[in-house]
Amino acid sequence: MAKFLLKRLLLAVPVVVGISVITFVLLYFLPADPARMYAGPNATVDTVNRIRHQLGLDQPVWVQYGRYVSRAVQGDLGYSYRLQMPVSQALASRFPYTLELTLAGIFVELLIGLTSGIAAALRRGSWVDSASMLLALLGVAAPPFWLGLMFLYLFAYKAGLFPLGGAGGLSHLVLPALTAGLGGAAWYARMSRSSTLDILHADYVRTARAKGLPGYRVLFKHVLRNAMNPIVTMAGMDIPWFISGVVLVEIVFGWPGVGRLAVDAVQTADIPLIMGTVIFTAMMVVVSSVLIDVAQAWLDPRVRTD
């Protein structure tokens, strides 16, 4: 298992390096002058040039990249112009929020998605099935930022049940987590419904039932465990999209996470911060896929020997 994990991690390295190269080169062509943004309007052209030189922005792109990487491997991701703090510090202060929202969103995703999907499969053809599949269809189709605004309007503004955004206690988390999770929940509902249906018809389940095992034991022992496989695979595919969704949700709800930081950084041409947020988010994606691979390997030993 350890060897498998190590192999997966090693494979992830070129991905992160590649992403950093692409982002860095893209940013080099950003039509904004970071030195000017830093220097402000009253700075003379001399001052701007001096600042550009001090920030190393007058060097060729590969030199800048080389310097960036050599520092990054030591944990120094540069200094944010706008926030006036090391990028790593900014990420460290915002990451807990993103993590909180991501985990809560995944919780919503799995809770709503799996329960409604499995319930739909077990009661195939009933109103439970139709209702949960209709919800699933709508959940996939609703733009997350719109859903967020609708929730804000209905539950926070009209009903006054939740705060109008921002981070804080549990009450602040409910609406953003629902928004982040619902789209994914819809996918999981469809997926878990169909894989549960498949397994319900599989021979071993029929046998188990025929042997007179109680329904819930069949459900937990055979159905759920086997239904997990395609679901876990899907989770791996879903992650980059899920994290993109979290970015939008953070913006709608004024959630102080990494995604919001990234969008703000693009607005202000804060290049070290854009670099930092993109690479950090990419690493989140990569690490989650490794975790999911491991989960898959644990669920299905055949994968390990692949």
Partner: peptide, 24 residues
């Protein structure tokens, strides 16, 4: 396919934002 995997790991929306910001 490695390249494809890499692009898939790119946070979709951030990539799109960065591209759109650069390309106007």
């Amino acid at each position: 396919m490695r390249f494809t995997d890499m692009m898939m790991a790119f946070p979709t929306l951030l990539l799109a934002i960065a591209l759109a910001a650069i390309l106007r």
